[in-house]
């Protein structure tokens, strides 16, 4: 009786193990087969989608709940940034073009810690085009410092930008200085 019971238990165990192995192999096969589909499918682009939805900075200022007088007084007090010397100065810009010739380097996702008349400090990443190679790192975390506020074309704007790379650098220099406006 004992022998028979043990044989039955062993058989049940064998069936369970076989079932588990087959299930795992089947799931693995399904998982692997989805690779090709995933690679050739259009994937999400969450950052671009977010940038698409967020309005440009000029519009943002217009929509601010302050009155026109407040906004003008604020602009009058604080210098802005004229990207590549064109357009109106923008206060606390999130993006600044560094290489204006081909726009191949852009300071992006800038978050400002201090933004005053004497200067501004913030951090973000510098993106470089061309060197991507698919997965090679081409975004470089950096700290930014705006300085040299001057009156340009009747409006107050910063004229210099220091970039200090916090990790890897695109060209080997740990710090770069750009003349803006």
């Amino acid at each position: 009786m004992t022998d028979r019971a043990e044989t039955r238990r062993a058989r049940v165990r064998t069936v369970l193990v076989t079932f588990a192995v087959v299930t795992v192999v089947a799931l693995g096969g399904v998982w692997l087969s989805q690779v090709t589909d995933r690679a050739s499918a259009v994937g999400a682009a969450p950052k671009t989608a977010a940038a698409q939805k967020s309005p440009p900075p000029e519009i943002a200022r217009k929509e601010q709940p302050h009155g026109p007088a407040d906004r003008e007084s604020a602009s009058a007090e604080l210098p802005g940034v004229r990207d590549c010397g064109a357009g109106d100065p923008v206060l606390e810009p999130k993006i600044i073009t560094l290489a204006c010739a081909d726009a191949g380097a852009v300071a992006s996702d800038i978050k400002w810690k201090n933004y005053g008349a004497g200067g501004a400090d913030g951090s973000g990443v510098v993106l470089v085009s061309g060197g991507a190679k698919g997965v090679a790192p081409a975004s470089f975390p950096a700290a930014f410092h705006l300085y040299g506020a001057k009156n340009v074309d009747g409006k107050l704007a910063f004229t210099g930008l220091d970039v200090e790379y916090l990790g890897a650098t695109p060209s080997g220099d740990a710090a770069e200085t750009y003349t803006i406006a």
């Binding site: 671009t48 726009a103 852009v106 992006s108």
Partner: peptide, 29 residues
Amino acid sequence: RDHQARSYQDGLLSSALQVYQRDGTLALG
């Protein structure tokens, strides 16, 4: 690797889009 490559291109496009929306110029290739 796929995910990183897509994410990086997404980041580039996001910045390029902001520059394009602001200045109408083509940045970052």
